[in-house]
């Protein structure tokens, strides 16, 4: 029995170490419940623990991916999966422009999804992404802190941040960088919260979007910062890509 436990312990340790070696650029997000922007009053959402990439995928990493998966080269990609803006700034199939450690942008949802699958990972769900992104340097939910919201809002107004290298914004509570301040990021279910483009009408269609936020009683700043993300997601389609839109991957925790 003792031997068995020891063996089990050893195996687990090995597995654990192997896992950490593989996931050394991932961070644990412990999960919990949170009240999303779109939720009805008091209707919280449970987020299970998961591992998230510390940084968004970079140009260099994406180049490696297209070399290994020629189907996703700029000249080969099927238009159903990526429109003309796919890798539009790349000089050719294997030459990106900008810094090697700048985030890979102009990547469609299909391509981002495939990339993550090839790493044995997946794209984060909106709730996972939003949950991890509530954090500032010190606390897991900084949404009521003015400096946190001001940081996001001022990023919205800073042009061409997509040229910046990863890792220059703050390291958040979970040890994750760049959820704010660099580029937008794809999520698995980006188009499930509908912002139709007629934001005022959205209020009628989906009163939760408004009532929810009103009953939180939190600052309007918080809603504004988040609204912009939902609006951006709502404007995208899976085959679209954008200069200001990158991605990162997450992984379930195997129990």
């Amino acid at each position: 029995m003792k031997l068995y436990s020891t063996t089990l312990f050893l195996v687990c340790s090995i597995l654990f170490f192997k896992a950490t070696a593989q996931n050394d650029s991932m961070a644990l997000v412990k999960g919990g419940v949170y009240l999303p922007l779109y939720g009805a009053a008091g209707q919280t959402v449970k987020v299970d623990p998961f591992m998230m990439d510390v940084y968004p995928v970079t140009n260099e990493e994406y180049l490696k991916f297209v070399k290994e998966n020629p189907k996703w080269k700029k000249s080969n990609v099927i238009s159903l999966f990526a429109d003309k803006s796919y890798l539009t700034k790349w000089e050719n199939d294997t030459t990106y422009t900008g810094l090697p450690n700048a985030p890979a942008t102009n990547v469609s949802w299909f391509a981002a999804k495939k990339y993550c699958e090839c790493q044995g990972k997946r794209l984060p769900k909106i709730d996972e992404w939003e949950f991890a992104a509530m954090a500032n340097e010190k606390v897991a939910d900084a949404r009521r802190i003015e400096s946190y919201n001001q940081y996001i809002l001022s990023w919205y107004e800073t042009p061409r941040t997509f040229n910046n290298p990863i890792g220059e914004s703050y390291k958040n509570y979970y040890g994750i960088y760049d959820l704010h301040g660099l580029v937008w990021e794809w999520t698995q279910d980006f188009n499930t919260v509908l912002i139709t483009g007629e934001s005022r009408k959205d209020g009628d269609k989906n009163p939760n979007l408004f009532c929810g936020s009103a009953t939180i009683g939190a600052s309007d700043l918080m809603n504004y910062a988040a609204f912009m993300r939902y609006a951006f997601r709502g404007s995208m389609k899976a085959r679209y890509s954008s200069q200001n839109l990158g991605f990162r991957c997450v992984k379930d925790i195997e129990i």
């Binding site: 919205y156 937008w184 483009g197 007629e198 009408k201 912009m228 609006a231 200001n244």
Partner: peptide, 28 residues
């Protein structure tokens, strides 16, 4: 190069949202 989606509501339009819903456009 723009970061945000935008649209246009023209008060000269007779129609839902003044065109806002039909014109919601992503960067690029």
């Amino acid at each position: 190069d723009n970061k945000l989606p935008h649209n246009i509501d023209l008060h000269a339009v007779n129609g839902p949202g003044g065109g806002a819903e039909s014109s919601f456009v992503a960067p690029g």
